Every structure is written in structure tokens, then in C-alpha cells.
Simulated scan of single mutants.
Amino acid sequence: MGARIRDVAVRAKVSAGWVSTYLNSPEKIAPDKARRIQQAIDELGYVRNDAGRQLRRGTSGVVGFVAFDVGDPFTYMVARGARRRAAEAGFRVVIADTEGDSSIERDYLKMFEEQRARGVLVSAVDNESYLEAAQIRQPTVMIDHRSNSGRFSSVSVNNVLGGRLAVDHLLDQGRTRIAFVGGPISIQQIGDRLHGAQLAIGERRGAQLEVISTEDRDTAAGRSVAERILARPPAQRPDALFCVNDTIAVGVLQRLLTDGSIRLPEDLAIIGYNDVALESFPLYPLSSIRQPQEALGRTAVELLLDEVDATAPGKRPHVVFDPELIVRQSTLSGDGSAADVISIRPKPT
């Protein structure tokens, strides 16, 4: 059994009340007494039990972040933005990785509520219906999802616009046989990107869009897609790929660059989504749709702080960011040194 407050008090030759005061308001303790208490804490290895304090107070200084996949670069950057903003407000962010499993997601939501987390940020697997069914009572903000009911604050990116930007760019480069790569389409963000791609295709006569679905969204899935494309006769191959994230696009690039039979971007242009590939795969500049990841995380915490201060129920705000088109070598002939950026503006709705 670990040392207790009264053990520290005996060692420091003070009352337990003085130890408690030192732990909560050290500036109220005389320097000599404070030195003795700290020395006793160090000698006994006393560790403060925050759980009891949190239960008595009803809340903690922790903000939960229920993440779809912490290994995803997009999620990492969102979480970093959230952590930095939360720290400015005196909170700590604890990240829980659901690995894309909705049952794990529910378990973590319950755990954060039981631990009296100050609030929770949810990068969800499912839509908000299960949040409502679970009767979540703590302040909650949905990330990269929109709350259709208005019960939860939410922040997201206009993925329909992102899909349009990507495919419009490919069409402007003279591509007519475009493949949308990724999945599952049932995921809201991916479905929205496909919808945007379809809208762009529908406005261009003679353009075609096929869907190459994948269950996973990692580099292995991208390499598998590349194998499938290589197996086709050249006349039946797409001349452009719109990948739902940079990770899949990098997998495609890895396999095609190793094979060497398809010229990039002359035979096949490739654009990704999230604009994180240069950090993990700097060998080939990839065009991409950039999302303001850190801004998403910071904004989510801002909305959560507003939730904490809210005194009455009501429709919660949603903030949506517009993405940017970043053009690099993978979709341009020549040296690919140019970059075309469309500015973003956050807008509450």
C-alpha cells in the first residue's frame, strides 16, 4: 500500500490538514514547513490520488479524445491542435484509440463519463444517433462530423467540396477516365468525397468515374489497388486516381514507381487527400486536398469550452472549414514545382 497523507504528515511533523493545504495551495504554507512536507513526499514516494478529488468535485481536468485511428496522420494532427488549445485552458487531453471499432468507442465514452472527464471530443465511427441513445451527459463535440440534430457542437471539413476540387483539377489536366479509390463508402467523409467527385464528373461531357473500393485505407490497400491496375490492359486503365487519403495514394505510388511500366503523371495522374504525404513519403511530390487539421482540433476545444460554460440547452453550433487544393508533380507534367492553393475560411452555420 502506498503512502497516505497522514504518513506524510507524521514524517514532516505537521498536521494532515497542512499537507492537504500544501498540495492544493502551496503558496499558503510557510517556506520551512513547505520544505519539510515536500521532503517527506519525496522520501515516502507519496502519489496524490486525484480520483477522489475529482469525484468530490464532480469533474476533472481531463478532456477525452475518442479517436477513430490514432495511427492516421490526419487524426494525429487534429489531436495535436486539440492538446495545445486544451493546455492553454488548463486541461489535459487523453486520447483513446478505437481502431475503427464502434463497440470500443462506446466503452471509452462510458469510461470518460465514469471518470468525470470535463468533456469529450469524438472523432466517431458511427453517426450521432448512438451518442443520443447512450444519453451522454458530459459536454461533447463531434470532430469531422456534422451534428444533424443540433444537439452536439461539431466541427468538420466540407468534403463534398474537397471531392469536387480534386476531380475538377484532374479534369482540367485533360483526364477523362478517373478512378475514385478508397472506402468503405458508408463512412460519411468518404461518401461525401465521392459525392463531390460525382458532381464534378457530371458537369464534364465524356468524362467517366469508376469506384475502386477498399476496406482499409493504408499503404497496403494502395499497393493492392496498384496491382489491380497493372493487371489491366493499358487501354482499360484509368488515366487518373483520386485517393480518399494520402496513405492509399502513397501505397499506389510505391508499387507503380517500383514497377516502372506506367509513367507518372503522363499515363496516370494521382491526387490524395489530407496533404500529409510529404512527411512520410518525400520521394515523389503528391498533389492533395489539404485539411486544416490543427485548426479542427483547436476549434473543437473552443466549442467544448463553450459547452462547459453553457447554462441552458439549445441548438449547438457547427463550424465547417473549406479544404485547399495543393497541386504538385503527381498531377502535373514538367517539374511539378508549382503549387496552386485555394484559401480556406472557417464559417459557423
Score class of each variant (00 low, 15 high):
S261V: 07
Q208R: 15
I344A: 02
F180D: 02
P31L: 02
R228Y: 09
G150Y: 05
P139Y: 14
L23H: 10
L296P: 08
S343Q: 08
R36M: 07
E324T: 14
Q188A: 04
R92K: 15
S102K: 04
H318N: 08
H318S: 08
V63P: 02
R146L: 08
V8H: 01
D275A: 12
I212V: 13
Y273M: 01
L257Q: 14
Q54G: 12
Q173M: 13
T247P: 01
E227H: 03
R228M: 10
I178Y: 07
D101N: 08
F281S: 10
Y46L: 10
T311F: 09
A310N: 15
E203C: 06
I344T: 06
P139R: 12
P265Y: 06
R137F: 14
T176Q: 14
S330Y: 07
Q198P: 10
R56W: 04
V167G: 04
R345M: 15
S330N: 13
G71P: 08
I41G: 01
V301A: 09
F91G: 03
V320L: 04
D322H: 03
D50N: 13
E279N: 13
A89Y: 15
R193I: 02
G196Q: 01
R223W: 04
E203T: 15
E105H: 01
S224H: 12
E27Y: 14
D97P: 05
R164D: 01
V211A: 11
G163C: 03
R255G: 00
G45R: 09
V252T: 03
F74W: 05
S337T: 10
Q188T: 06
E132Y: 12
E324A: 09
L170F: 13
H195Q: 07
Q138K: 12
E128L: 02
Q115P: 08
